[in-house]
Design a protein around this nucleic acid. Structure first.
Lengths: 171, 171
DNA sequence: GTTTATCTACCTATCGATAGGTTGATACGG
DNA sequence: CCGTATCAACCTATCGATAGGTAGATAAAC
């Protein structure tokens, strides 16, 4: 059996990616794995701390997945990001964690806002470095924006095909 | 003085665009205009009803603004959407209402989810009709996705310049 | 015997929502 | 002109539910 903290993070991630930061509560997570809400505080002192931890784990997994894909050319790099986003949408049927949190960033604690910013900075830095050339950063922003927006549209339509249409022109 | 219902909607819209659906409460809105939370129910029976009303008003204003811009060519049409998004970001410094709601759509009532879907459908329909050609719809999805994603990125960075970079390639 | 994980049992704050009453303006009937 | 009925707008007071969080006890593991 997976460790409790890990299972709590799994559930919290799913809830956030489905309904945002307000979409989960300690009580709900606890009930889903059969413990009491007070016990969740043993693993994560506050809700914001927990969300930040979930964000870090998500980012680590995301960049590991990107790194596992071919990245010889600039097109490879863009394709790597695109297929990583697509895999997240297909596998879980959920939004990108940072797409959700970024949209409601104005209401989140600085602790979480920092994680959001650092994720996107890392995306743009990595991607523009792999794209290269004078307009690399601009192109990187465009790619990330299209992927995040495409994912949001696919969720609104509840149709993953919409994502494919939105990002078709990227590579 | 503006009517109370109008002022409530103004405030609700600002809160949603800043922090999502959970980012406003009847109490907070009421306090901001100096009435009691119970009185808000006189104007909007439920929170979901109010959010749906705010969404409809936002959509109406949005499409009116788009329609006011030049739309001779396909490029005009894309530029019209881009500048309408850009104006919303510059004027208010806030997200697109539907970008926020779409991201957390999984946790919203069907009443609101319907408004979200109908907004994006209307965007894509209008835009692809004005673009024309065989790949018009695919292109429309791409444009909307990039605009929404670009707006989200600009908010995460707290830098409107990021929006311009993300959408630079659109026209 | 200390640490780890969980419990019971709370607390305070806030949420959306409801019931029932007050006020003041408007409209109507005699 | 006066009385009456109606209505919108807001009030006070309260509801039950839920939120995040805390304190202290318990039981097992190392």
């Amino acid at each position: 059996m997976k460790e409790t903290a890990e299972r709590l993070m799994d559930l919290a991630e799913a809830h956030i990616r489905n309904a945002g930061y307000a979409g989960f509560s300690f009580r709900a997570l606890a009930a889903e794995i059969g413990i009491k809400s007070a016990s969740v505080h043993h693993h994560f002192p506050t809700k914001a701390t927990m969300a930040a931890a979930v964000a870090r784990r998500y980012a680590d997994r995301f960049f590991a997945a990107v790194a596992r894909r071919p990245n010889e050319t600039a097109d490879d790099a863009i394709a790597a990001y695109r297929s990583t986003f697509k895999a997240a949408l297909d596998r879980d049927g959920l939004m990108c964690l940072f797409g959700v949190l970024g949209a409601e960033a104005g209401g989140l604690s600085p602790e979480i806002a920092d994680e959001i910013l650092s994720f996107f900075r890392r995306c743009v830095e990595d991607l523009s470095q792999r794209i290269g050339g004078p307009d690399a950063e601009t192109r990187a922003f465009q790619v990330i924006a299209t992927l995040e927006g495409g994912m949001m549209l696919a969720r609104a339509y509840q149709d993953t095909e919409v994502f494919d249409q939105a990002v078709a022109a990227l590579v």
